[in-house]
Design a protein around this nucleic acid. Structure first.
Lengths: 227, 227
DNA sequence: ACCTGAACACCGTTCAAGT
DNA sequence: ACCTGAACACCGTTCAAGT
């Protein structure tokens, strides 16, 4: 039977744990309560298992996060480009899909983006749609490589900002106008002038349209390297 | 006298601790050994003080990191643009200076970039040089605002990659060619073709030139919104 | 092989007590 | 006000022992 609390090896097929089961539970904790709540002891608790049991399936906590990164990026794999798009629109779609994949697990994304050891082969494959679109655009290999790096870096930085703000809803809203108004005279004159010209309404920032306008800039910049 | 280990309030002027002294010691730990080594107990240890003493100067550990963020960004404040530059080159200089400031404390930068609560007014002022250059370029307030966001997001994402790789020197070098060669046939055809066309030499990546080529793309893209 | 229990060497932070 | 000591409620991980 091997009920909870009983030591000893379970019968074949009666294992209470598996790598998959552990990762599923871990992802749930991260999604619901954030990376900080995902401790080995807490994870074992939700699985109804001794903390040490986990170590028979994953070597340590870092491996748990690396496993979660795989799970998240694996979903990106299957996405097919929409038919009939210009290569520019296909490129934008790739960036949109990449952003969406990371947004699907915001708490995890922040962790994964800043942890190089969490990056595996699954992540490498993630960039295929970018390569495809730029190849269609007729760029040289070197230009493709650098353009993809630029785009991916931008998406990472954008997500850093987006997810940080989202995670900080309990904090005071970072009202740029307020902050600028409180700045000492002459500390940042151009910033002050531009921000105040935009005003409180003009600054109402929307991540989706911010992302789109950045994509427009980036794609125009990439196009201009063709000439 | 208030020698080490003696409790009680020190005489005026004989305080053994200050916010500045604490932050200086903390920055040293972070620079030398990384964010993970910077614990309250370790920090107190290097200051020769009881762990709890720190709490009389900073409310908690998060406040220590927020203070460190201030220290780092404060250095950016004084930078003046070089004379005689086109607005495009001035804009690139702003991005270069921002990257350099974050690179100066790589261990801290990763932490700060992903921690919204570490961002203070000091950081807001950081973007003034970007605003200045774009204002000279004749962009409208809205376009300036969005271009700065795009540029700053890119720099953040770029640094995330750059600092991650630097921090992972002990890990296996992420050799893209090797990884691509091991990929299942047809898994990422364009990526494979492009990467193999570049070859092992063509891919030898250099962060400095990668940064420059991204800046070229970004600035061209911003220019094209003027027309 | 798979799970457990006790133990080690840590954490951040609260609280009461010293001067 | 500034510093300390003991204590609370945690961590990740090693190791020996069960079946």
């Amino acid at each position: 039977m091997n009920t909870a609390g009983k030591p000893g090896r379970p019968r074949a097929g009666a294992e209470r744990l598996s790598r998959d089961a552990i990762l599923t539970a871990a992802l749930r904790i991260v999604d619901d309560e954030g990376v900080e709540a995902m401790t080995m002891r807490r994870l074992a608790g939700t699985l109804g298992v001794n903390p040490m049991s986990i170590y028979h399936h994953l070597p340590n906590k870092a491996a748990v996060f690396a496993g979660l990164a795989e799970v998240v990026f694996a979903g990106l794999d299957a996405v097919q480009p929409r038919a009939g798009l210009s290569w520019q629109e296909e490129l934008k779609d790739a960036a949109r899909a990449y952003r969406a994949a990371l947004q699907a697990h915001p708490n995890l994304a922040l962790q994964v983006l800043s942890d190089p050891s969490a990056v595996s082969d699954v992540v490498v494959v993630t960039v295929e749609p970018f390569y495809r679109a730029l190849d269609r655009g007729g760029l040289e290999p070197r230009a493709i490589f650098e353009s993809v790096n630029t785009l991916v870096d931008f998406v990472h930085g954008f997500l850093l900002g987006e997810l940080s703000v989202r995670a900080a809803t309990f904090d005071l809203a970072p009202d740029l106008v307020d902050r600028v108004e409180k700045l000492p005279e002459g500390k940042a004159p151009t910033l002050s002038r531009v921000v105040l010209a935009l005003g409180r309404d003009g600054l109402h920032y929307d991540f989706d349209s911010g992302f789109e306008s950045a994509l427009t800039v980036l794609v125009s910049g990439i196009e201009s390297t063709l000439r």
